[in-house]
């Protein structure tokens, strides 16, 4: 982007906020495109399986009539374009197919599990942000300009270690110690508010460590910028320096990362749900995949994929609203002078 020359100072400067409507349209378009690709991919999944998926499902000993009958039930005997048209038509009418084993409509399975999965993911995200952002800010202010190298090493090593351990191992450790060992929390299922504690904690630890690290790095970078030097030169009191000048600028990158982590957290919940027998989508997904219940597996991949895309879309929008700069940079087309 080239700097505007000062010759345009006669006219009042251009406002960039106006472009937000166009920006929203562009983001929506991209979301729609991604969703379309996802639908094609989930449709293609069953056709990409080498050999006969029906044989894989039913085993090599199943009688041919049964295989053919099931094939017809699933519509897999139709020509490919017709199958895809059917698939899209069913999706649009909210019909996600029927489980191969329980004959339960997939839409019902999702309807039962989705709220529990979302609750888990949302609580974990909020917990992670609430702990990590203040922690990262504090660490940055304490260790700026290479001060207190000991604190810095401890912070980076500990948070790094926390990131390196996967969520299901936190889950197992919490389960062994706090539930089976000390009996403080229920080990499995959803029986009350106490049931949330362990899964949410297991899911939140690694993202929290990651966000804290990122918040520290971002804050350090902003602390080193000219506008912060100027703010210090203005001798503003500390609260104003950090809360008013610093926080809004560090929040953007932190939220971007938080958003990316949130989508990782949605799939991380698959593992944690399996540890705690949580009645969400994750348990059913793994069940479906290991039982080769392809209609359910297909739908689950579609639902998780769509969740991720929608979450990313919402995070992008949130950043647009919070940070006036990103709206500008996203709206200017990619031409360098």
């Amino acid at each position: 982007m080239t700097a505007l020359s000062d010759t345009d100072r006669g006219a009042p400067p251009r406002r960039s906020r106006r472009l937000t409507g166009r920006l929203l349209a562009r983001r929506l378009l991209r979301l729609a495109g991604s969703l379309a690709v996802l639908v094609v991919a989930s449709f293609a999944m069953i056709h990409l399986i080498p050999g006969d998926p029906l044989r894989r499902m039913l085993g090599s000993t199943a009688p041919k009539e049964l295989v053919d009958q099931r094939r017809a039930e699933l519509g897999l005997d139709q020509p490919l374009p017709a199958q895809f048209a059917d698939h899209v038509r069913q999706l649009l009418s909210g019909d996600l197919g029927t489980s191969f084993f329980s004959s339960q409509p997939v839409a019902d399975i999702i309807g039962q599990g989705l709220p529990h999965t979302l609750a888990l993911a949302a609580l974990a995200t909020l917990t992670a942000l609430a702990v990590a952002v203040p922690l990262g800010l504090w660490a940055a202010v304490r260790t700026r300009d290479g001060r207190r190298r000991g604190t810095e090493t401890a912070f980076t090593t500990l948070t790094g270690a926390a990131v390196a351990v996967p969520e299901y191992l936190y889950g197992l450790a919490l389960l062994l110690v706090l539930s089976l060992g000390l009996g403080l929390f229920p080990p499995a299922g959803l029986t009350g508010p106490a049931s949330y504690v362990l899964p949410v904690t297991a899911l939140a630890i690694a993202p929290a460590a990651m966000i804290a690290r990122l918040a520290r790095v971002e804050t350090l970078r902003e602390l080193d910028s000219d506008y912060m030097r100027l703010a210090r030169a203005k001798r503003l009191p500390a609260w104003r320096l950090y809360a008013v000048h610093l926080l809004p600028n560090t929040l953007t990158a932190t939220l971007t990362m938080g958003g990316l982590l949130l989508s990782g957290l949605i799939t991380g919940s698959v593992l944690v749900e399996n540890v705690f027998a949580w009645p969400g989508l994750g348990l059913r997904t793994v069940e479906a995949i290991t039982q080769k219940d392809y209609p359910v597996a297909q739908a689950m991949i579609l639902v998780y994929g769509a969740l991720v895309l929608v979450v990313n879309f919402l995070v992008d929008l949130l950043i647009d609203v919070l940070d006036p700069r990103s709206a500008l940079s996203a709206s200017t087309t990619s031409g360098e002078g």
């Binding site: 989508s263 990782g264 994929g305 990313n312």
Partner: peptide
């Protein structure tokens, strides 16, 4: 860009369904 948006576990599960358990 599109693929990066999807978490690793989701891509891995998709591939595993296709390639075998």
């Amino acid at each position: 860009d599109l693929l990066v948006a999807f978490p690793a576990l989701l891509l891995a599960m998709f591939t595993a369904v296709v390639a075998g358990l």
